[in-house]
Design a protein around this nucleic acid. Structure first.
Lengths: 90, 90
DNA sequence: ATCGTTAATCGACTATTAACGATAAAGAGA
DNA sequence: TCTCTTTATCGTTAATAGTCGATTAACGAT
């Protein structure tokens, strides 16, 4: 499977904000975590973080799994690999 | 030299538009070219393309060299390498 | 059944972006 | 010098993004 330009631009756009880059780095580091943990790390409101997570999810680079009242977020490893592969070919 | 999160986010943001991704891909392919050539490729006005090039320049991933009335644009290979290195570590 | 926790969504506001046409600037060539 | 070519910038408009507080929804536990 290979990314096209549109998909790449969408992920680039999603990563085009320092907070979202940091969220993704954090998710990669700790593998999975819930929204509240991310809210605790950053100086933004719960709604703002939730919005950032929504954008990341829409780009495909992050996925969220609802489990009871919580949502577990993690990086989609398949998409991440495709993303990295594309960039390596630049 | 290593990129920090802010710099990365700035480049991601600059690449967060399909036209700008394509411009960068084109620049990598043909090494260097003037604004007018890019205008001919895309269905946007000269001012819009010039604006896209300005954003790419400001992010650092592209550089432009004025030579007479023309400006030669190319990808900054050093920055591109740092960019790729950063992503590879994700 | 109510309450507390967690996350998503809504509505508002401001700021930024994307696009255009028009204009300006700067050099090359007649 | 005047004109042509090339690119950058300005002013405008419409759309999107970023942030917040308030509200809603969904679930678990008492």
């Amino acid at each position: 499977m290979e990314m096209n330009t549109e998909q790449m631009a969408k992920i680039f756009k999603a990563l085009g904000h320092p907070t979202r880059v940091k969220i993704v780095e954090h998710l990669i580091k700790i593998n999975t975590c819930v929204c509240g943990e991310i809210v605790d790390i950053f100086p933004f409101s719960q709604s703002t973080i939730s919005q950032h997570l929504k954008l990341l999810k829409e780009s495909g680079i992050v996925c969220g799994e609802i489990e009871g009242p919580k949502t577990y977020f993690c990086v989609d490893k398949t998409i991440l690999k495709q993303f990295k592969d594309y960039i390596q070919l630049l």
